[in-house]
Amino acid sequence: MDLFLQQLTNGLAVGSIYALIALGYTMVYGVLKLINFAHGDLFAIGAYLGLTLLTTFGLSQYLGPMGVVIVLAVMVMGLVAVVGAVLERVAYRPLRQAHRLSAVVSAMGASIFFQNALMLVYGARYKVYPHDILPKNAVSIMGFEIPLVRLLVLLTSVLMMVALYLFIQKTRIGTAIRAAAIDQRAAKLMGINVDRVIMIVFLIGPALGGVAGLMVGLYYGQINFTMGWMYGLKAFTAAILGGIGNIPGAMVGGLLLGVIEAMGAAYISIAWKDAITFMVLIAILIVRPTGLLGERVADKV
């Protein structure tokens, strides 16, 4: 039983990162029906930018660990949001009237571009975050030793999800985003500046991906230019699992994916872990063809 709970927390920790990346995926998808294959690479860019900012400004000399994390998060989110907006402007906007698969090819081209750009700028070797940023101690919850950092990651993604949900549901811009998600043309007729809405979505989605990259860097320490591919695929899986376009769905999908992985490795086979995950996914989709929580996309795909 102990082992089970231990594996559960392992799974939740990984899953919360998948969830954070999946939030960005799902948001962009909700409005544009676009699978942004470059999203994983925006996440990797976030991880690399976080490292650059951390080492050039020497933030930890002036601030405590929490301060460093918050300042870094804000800066990384800002920068990656700009990259995301530029990506939208250059690679996706000209394709908005085209068939949706055309944009997928453009997204893949962008993904190859970003990945190799990171390799050329930062080198192909692993990059490593400094070890002394976050406290290494663990907190004891119900007799369980859980590293503080894990709680932090979980907390961040839950916070982000709640904030995003409230933003979409309660604010004027959020309403515009929802309107554009249902029918862009109708939204335009109602006086909504759809281009601006899409731009905002492309600021928020990548920002979430970027902050997830920072979290991975801070937590695991090791980053690599190809990491976006793997995490991107996992997050896409998570988004689909929960029901794409659905914000709580991305969260549930991410956490569940992490837990399935951990349980697959724990009780079935480590080497078959990813295959087990996909088998579960396929089984779920056969039973529920639009994901666990259902999709929130009004338009016919």
Partner: peptide, 22 residues
């Protein structure tokens, strides 16, 4: 050399932008 896939990625995006239906 090492930049070849970078150029390839950029060209893919460009080709899609200019010929949106392939």
């Amino acid at each position: 050399a090492t930049a070849r896939m970078l150029v390839f990625g950029a060209i893919m995006v460009a080709m899609m932008i200019f010929r949106t239906e392939g």
